[in-house]
């Protein structure tokens, strides 16, 4: 059984070490904070000016001036802070953030990432994606392994406009967790019932065991 979007998020959450500061992008990454294991202290950063972002509690009323990068109402934990865009991107570019988790349209063998535009259509725009992908210490991608029509998204080279070059460290997909070292990729884990051949067939570059 391939992992669902929530299972991908849970898998990512369980791999984030205690004490890390993490920027999360839109899509599957927004699900990650709710799966951080109890007792682990992970601080979430949102590009629009929050450190210590947490999901809105059920009994909490939404504040229109406290939103995440996807414009959803969120909340802030004890120890958190608010700041303006220039300070927020200083954190991002300045290497102060341990990990970025983003969605992807395509990832190349070299670790290049495309996630803001197909050649036909700009999704929303570049937003903060280029800054996050080139600024954080590590970048993990959360994505479905192939497009809905079965087209490969993990390719020798990206065919869509690039967000950043040689930045992706890991891919968490519905089929597997993959890790990159230069141009070599290996499987960290396969989803239950998925075999290596299936992952290799769904991937446009070679994968080691």
């Amino acid at each position: 059984m391939a992992w669902s979007r929530d299972e991908i998020a849970r898998r990512i959450a369980s791999d984030i070490p205690d004490g890390w500061t993490v920027n999360i992008g839109v899509g599957i990454p927004t699900l990650v904070p709710r799966y951080i294991p109890q007792g682990r202290e992970v601080v979430f950063h949102s590009e629009n000016g929050i450190l210590g972002m947490v999901p809105l509690r059920e009994d909490e009323s939404p504040d229109p001036e406290v939103i995440d990068a996807g414009k959803n109402a969120v909340s802030i934990r004890f120890g958190g802070s608010f700041f303006d865009s220039s300070v927020s991107f200083a954190m991002i570019r300045g290497g102060h953030i341990d990990l970025g988790i983003v969605g992807a349209l395509q990832v190349s063998q070299n670790g290049d990432l495309s996630n803001w535009s197909t050649n036909e259509r700009m999704i929303g725009g570049i937003g903060g994606a280029a800054d996050v992908c080139s600024g954080v210490k590590q970048l993990w991608v959360a994505m479905m392994h192939t497009a809905e029509n079965g087209t490969r998204k993990l390719l020798t080279d990206c065919t869509f406009p690039l967000t950043a070059v040689s930045v992706v460290c890991r891919v968490y997909s519905d089929l597997a967790v993959l890790e990159r070292d230069e141009r070599k990729w290996k499987v960290v884990t396969l989803s239950p019932g998925t075999d290596l051949l299936e992952v290799r067939n769904a991937t446009g570059f070679p994968i080691d065991i």
Binding site: D84, S86, S88, A130, D131, A164, V165
Partner: peptide, 27 residues
């Protein structure tokens, strides 16, 4: 890129001619 947009505005208001950034290289 969003960080370049905000920093170029900050530079303009800070008496600076511009910003040196690595964001966007190769794209």
């Amino acid at each position: 890129p969003q960080g370049t947009l905000s920093e170029c505005l900050r530079a303009a208001g800070s008496g600076l001619g511009g910003v040196l950034t690595r964001v966007g290289i190769g794209t």
